[in-house]
Design a protein around this nucleic acid. Structure first.
Lengths: 184, 184
DNA sequence: GTCTATACAGTGATAGAC
DNA sequence: GTCTATCACTGTATAGAC
């Protein structure tokens, strides 16, 4: 059986899922080969820097997705629609809480110290993009920043609690509540 | 040099800090021996079940702390004072966000599946204790449960964001905002 | 009760055949 | 570009001296 064409970009979503579910330390090369169907040799061909380069590629991939689907709309589109779109995108991306935030999970342990800029950048841009939309929607700067911080933090917390309690409806319920707080 | 008396209970806070900072997979026996000053032999003497038993002991220790300092006060004392005490205890326990929630961190990766009951129990009790206090303070049951969920999830999210952004003031600021939401 | 020595599986990573 | 074979090393865990 000959392996068909398989590009680096095809591997990244599978790598992302591995790191998301197992964590950086927990995602061993064995588990990664099993999930991607690629041998270690192929993985090192695509990512000469090994596991760390794989994680960097995954972080970049996640960041790009959020820029395209969340941050840029918040920064450029009509604020009401962009914010509504954010809640939709977030619920879909995190599969109603069944999927964890890779970057949030990396932030919690010493993995953060491997990728500090990538982790920081993601959250800072999310908060500032949302704050910007809230300002364009009429909030003053201080309130907008606080509300944005509150919303982003709430999403991360909802992911933790959804997994911890195994309550499948918690996430979507939390998003609705967070969306309501933004209206205050 | 003779090792002085060192009880199992003395090791647990050090183990807790190791798991908290490094994660379950990241906390290797080498790092644990370095942090506790106990050799592998001694560790296995105290915890014959190895790393898993160490983590169980730590989870139990954390749970007991929260029962004594947070859950029971919420369940038994005057609600206003108990809730105010909760915010104080949380800010102190998590060192204004410099310290991560071990149980929340465990919830995010496959470590959850090792200790599902302990993780679930902690968060369920926290939410129900807080909801109970809110009910005694005059909220209706549905509102109280939602607000309690919102508060606990906010704490977890604030821990993620504090570490991610390295903004030392974020955590305390978030707690103030979360406390304000409970008043609504 | 504490340690050192050790077993042995699994780790990330590399070399080289095809 | 993909694989297998293999490397040196670290992982958890155990045995046994003191």
């Amino acid at each position: 059986m000959v392996k068909t064409v398989f590009e680096k970009s095809d591997a990244i979503p599978l790598l992302a899922e591995a790191f998301r579910e197992l964590g950086y330390e927990g995602a061993t090369l064995s588990s990664i080969t099993a999930r991607t169907g690629l041998s270690k040799g192929s993985l090192y061909h695509f990512f000469p820097g090994g596991k760390e380069e794989m994680a960097e590629a995954v972080l970049d991939h996640v960041d790009c997705w959020f820029i395209a689907h969340v941050f840029q709309p918040l920064e450029e589109e009509e604020p009401g629609a962009a914010i509504a779109g954010m809640w939709q995108a977030v619920d879909a991306y995190f599969r109603a809480g069944q999927r964890v935030c890779l970057i949030g999970a990396f932030a919690l342990d010493e993995t953060r110290d491997r990728f500090p800029q990538a982790i920081n950048r993601y959250f800072v841009r999310w908060i500032s993009a949302l704050a910007g939309a809230l300002i364009r929607a009429g909030k003053d700067e201080k309130t907008a920043t606080q509300l944005a911080e509150h919303a982003v933090l709430g999403i991360q917390g909802a992911l933790v609690l959804t997994r911890a309690t195994a309550d499948g409806k918690l996430f979507t319920r939390a998003l609705e509540r967070l969306a309501a707080v933004l209206e205050i």
